[in-house]
Design a protein around this nucleic acid. Structure first.
Length: 104
DNA sequence: CTATTGACGACAT
DNA sequence: CATGTCGCCAATA
């Protein structure tokens, strides 16, 4: 599978920085990779993630605490998060977001 | 090289 | 609180 340098950094950083039961925002992940303004590009990288589910792209969510997107179905992403103990409201907002979020 | 796209974010309406 | 607009960036056509 071909991966770009940027993607590799995203996948690697995500893997070593976000354990099960925690989440990180596209923005914070962008910051950790050294590209503070590439949150959108990070989302694109997650979308193409060739190492799923080794690379936990389902733990990457929006900075406002909502879920964000997912390559397959959004429900699948919610399911995976719940399996890790993360609670989500009916309006698809993560509970205790501030406490579960990995900050740079 | 330019144009378009999209799992985003901040701010205004 | 819900939408719209604008800015940003890497990948791809």
């Amino acid at each position: 599978m071909h991966t770009t340098k940027f993607q590799d950094i995203c996948y690697k950083t995500l893997q070593i920085s976000v354990p099960s039961g925690r989440v990180i925002s596209y923005k914070n992940l962008a910051i950790l990779t050294g590209n503070p303004k590439a949150s959108r590009a990070v989302g694109n990288a997650m979308n193409k993630n060739p190492f799923a589910p080794d690379v936990p792209c389902h733990r990457v969510v929006k900075s406002d605490g909502s879920i964000g997107g997912f390559a397959s179905s959004i429900e699948k992403k919610i399911q995976l998060l719940r399996e890790e103990g993360i609670e989500i409201d009916g309006d698809r907002k993560i509970k205790n977001f501030e406490k579960l979020l990995i900050s740079p």
